[in-house]
């Protein structure tokens, strides 16, 4: 079964545990600036939203790369940057419609979410289940269930 990261902004508190977990997994240090999952704060709205790569099936970044530095991990479905091949040309960053692959000036290469080989650290670190790693076919089911609940006949309604 293929799994997807499922992001639910309504549950996010903006604590950044996910960003710390991501950077520690990749770099061995707590460095939110280098995390490839990002939590955005919308102050006036009073909302927080985590965002990262959705692992497109037909990935623009993968197709755009002139040196074939982005490949698919067949076990997880993740699109993975091969650092040894990446030349830092940034064409992928232009092609990605979501902005979830970015250049890293410290390394001269691009970085994106690779689902940690199929066991994403961000999901494990999230204290509120705003980030979960679930059946790729079922990412809408929690919302579907919430609407289904509204269709329940109420126990207290007689009409």
């Amino acid at each position: 079964m293929q799994k997807s990261l499922h992001l639910d902004p309504a549950k996010c508190t903006g604590c950044l545990q996910c960003e710390m977990a991501c950077s520690y997994e990749k770099l061995g240090e707590f460095n939110p600036s280098r995390s490839v999952i990002k939590v955005f704060t919308f102050h006036e709205e009073g909302r927080f939203a985590p965002y990262t790569c959705t692992q497109c099936d037909e990935a623009w970044c993968l197709r755009a790369c002139p040196v074939d530095a982005i490949t698919m991990d067949l076990s997880s479905g993740a699109k993975v940057v091969i650092d040894d091949k990446c030349v830092g040309c940034k064409v992928c960053t232009i092609s990605c419609p979501f902005g979830t692959i970015n250049y890293v000036q410290e390394t001269g290469k691009v970085a994106k979410c690779d689902l940690c080989g199929g066991d994403p650290e961000c999901a494990k670190a999230c204290p509120t289940d705003a980030i979960t790693y679930i059946d790729a076919n079922a990412t809408g089911y929690d919302r579907m269930k919430a609407f289904a609940e509204k269709s329940l006949p109420s126990a207290n309604t007689t009409s």
């Binding site: 508190t13 903006g14 604590c15 950044l16 545990q17 710390m20 709205e45 009073g46 909302r47 927080f48």
Partner: peptide, 9 residues
Amino acid sequence: TTNGACFGC
């Protein structure tokens, strides 16, 4: 509106 966390909380 909602509850919010400080860093790492």
